[in-house]
Nucleic acid binder design. Sequence first.
RNA 1: GUGGAUGUAGCUCAAUGGCAGAGCAUCGCACUGUGGAUGCGAUGGUUGUGGGUUCGAGCCCCAUCAUCCACCCCA
Length: 425
Amino acid sequence: MKKVIQSVKGTRDFYPEQMAVRVWLYNMVREVAESFGYQEYEAPILESLELYAAKSGEELVKEQSYVFMDRGGSEITLRPELTPSLARMVAQKQNEVNFPVRWWSFGPFWRYERPQKGRTREFFQWNVDMLGVSSSEADAETAAVLATFFQRVGLTPQQVIIKVNNRRLIDDRFNALDISVEKRPAVSSWVDRRDKLSPESWTEYGRNIGLSPEQITKIKEMLADNDLWKQSAELTRFFAVVDALGLRQFFEFDASIMRGLLYYTGTVFEAWEVGGDIKRSILGGGRYDNLTRDVGGDPIPGVGFAMGDVVIGLILAKYDLLPKDLNINPAPVLVTVFNEDCLLESFKLASELRRAGLKVVCYPEAVKLPKQFKYADRIGAKVTLVLGPEEIEKGDVAVKNLMNGEQVSVPREMLIDTVRDMIGA
RNA sequence: GUGGAUGUAGCUCAAUGGCAGAGCAUCGCACUGUGGAUGCGAUGGUUGUGGGUUCGAGCCCCAUCAUCCACCCCA
């Protein structure tokens, strides 16, 4: 037995079955994004490492990015995320584009991590962003696109919830607690880990990063305060808007949502599965008001989110919301080849039907008819045509309806209508 | 980067240290101008790889590679 060369670790092969699911997901996100007037765009897959150096978060850039030297000696990155590219694209045309910009994208990304459940090295991401407006209404609308997507695919607030927080709100609290700016990333990741550790070891962790007992107590109080958001004008407005949009039930305030990326400045959000056996955020997003400046443009406020196809795929599979019976074979008509002498006649017939707008497969060699019928059945063809010596002599074509087994011989001039009738086209 | 589990036919999996098997898939026949269903039969293996222990290893030991799961981080 010869060994087939292995695929690259962390990549997925999209056989037609999987590709159909991916296209279905693409169609869902496109439909939802367009319903809010967002325009589709795409950025390069290759970017300079420099683009991410500023703000993406140290681990993402230094340890998780695919970086290589191209033949000209430039340091190139396979994009690990899209937002910096978007900021660059908007900054480059900051005087030409119409603000507010509403853009969306769905494409591949790469991160060099150990693959596991819900995580691959090559994945697809849906990105939705609005730039040029710094209002809470913009935050809420962007998040509403996401909630609408959940609705569209059949996910309910009992299954998925979008947890919302605000960096400025938390920063104010940290200021009040005298937590230095340098210490905040550590404090953030400590807060982020609250659900993963036992209360005791979580408290001990807090002491280890240099928090005083009073600070720890105050932060615990803060996290327990479900009404803390009312102290934030931005969040108050945010919740009012999602309420007006009829999507309030998908959102809840959670002071422990921090987000790892450094560029977020205001409202941030993450979606989680409520049932909780998928212990990772489904997606994340938030407001980033300095990113265009960080890539060299004028400061343009922005807000957006990214959803990976892998985790949402797990969620949709868990709740049995992935489409079944996706038709992966486009052609409902198969033309058989009776024998070598009839082969060209069959090819001509297939071509004739295609010119009439039908999708047609012609068997590519003169093998036994049972084999060709079996193939037609396997690919899900609805109609099979036979053009043998008898039919050619009479100027007929035998048309078999594979759904009910009935077969008729019809004159050539009636063929197209007969076939259309059978496949319901 | 750290820890755990698993590698046997194309696929899913069996096999007290004692003849390497089943189901599905494939191919053939029943059925030389017709698919699905059924029956009968056939093909298919250096048990991931390399060492070791043993009269004897798929099974035990060591190494290595791969995959999966968890941590880290994140979509």
